[in-house]
Design a protein around this nucleic acid. Structure first.
Lengths: 153, 153
DNA sequence: CGGATGTCAGTCGGACTGATATAA
DNA sequence: CTTATATCAGTCTGACTGACATCC
């Protein structure tokens, strides 16, 4: 039996936890990718399509189609970029923001049911981890000093 | 400005964290659903198709197709269920286990790069959360009574 | 027979590659 | 002219619904 590092055990636990966390009723007729676009726009604010190409896991033509559908559904708005005639700025409409917050609320609700059943000490430890998670998200956005390549996908 | 509960803040942080955590190179020509099937089989061991229908987010016919492809690719094996002539038992092949552990290793690697950059105290707190996450996964699998604690582990 | 388990058939949305228009 | 931004065209995988075979 080989040694398992702490980070490996943490990764395993997060993978399993996400199996629970991610499952929420679909309800909206939106694909995984479209929901991800809405979430990104909610987090990062107005973006250009080429910005989304970097964060989303799909190629430009698929993103064009996804955004076109979101616009038809009234969840995303496009305005011309004043500084660059080629590009449009994408942002959420009020209806788009509602979709994001409705799904967020469903996750809060599901997680709360579970957290409420934890022993109080565990509950406190879990809730106290928020700032560390936020710090990790910040670190991931930073340039990362000693990177060896940037290939992705 | 309205009040934000601790669970709401935690949910938000996990959502954002997952944006970082989930992004790993695709490499294998496998769909999201197929990867989820492999992960479930890895976690739960041999299953019948109807068991997977409960855990996966797709309907039975789509699962039939997905499993057929995984079998063609040599990642999943089917054996007849001795107790039930209608059903097959599904399990991972060695190649299937390798796919799961390769992806796991990629996540471990990505997470380690970030965890290494945390202040030591934060790192300890994060790694110490593993048992709470595991407990939540257990709770989610239980029929939902409402007692905190119940068994050791 | 009625209820479960699994597959088949037809359709459709969403993703890919490769080529193309327009502006910087 | 070359590069960046975005879209168009054609193809293919993978999901759905509804019908069906098979076994408890």
């Amino acid at each position: 039996m080989r040694t398992v590092s702490p980070v490996e055990r943490l990764t395993q636990s997060i993978e399993d936890f996400n199996g629970v966390f991610i499952r929420i009723p679909a309800a909206d007729r939106l694909s995984f990718s479209s929901l991800s676009v809405l979430h990104t726009l909610s987090r990062a604010g107005a973006c250009r399509l080429s910005d989304l190409v970097r964060t989303e896991q799909i190629k430009q033509p698929a993103l064009t189609a996804a955004v076109a559908k979101l616009e038809r559904d009234g969840l995303v708005r496009r305005s011309p970029d004043p500084d660059d005639g080629r590009a449009s700025m994408l942002s959420l409409t009020a209806a788009g923001r509602r979709v994001v917050s409705r799904r967020h609320a469903a996750r809060v609700d599901g997680l709360r049911r579970l957290v409420d059943r934890l022993p109080p000490a565990d509950r406190e430890r879990l809730l106290g981890i928020v700032d560390v998670l936020d710090r990790i998200v910040e670190l991931a956005a930073e340039p990362e000093h000693e990177s060896h390549d940037g290939d992705a996908r």
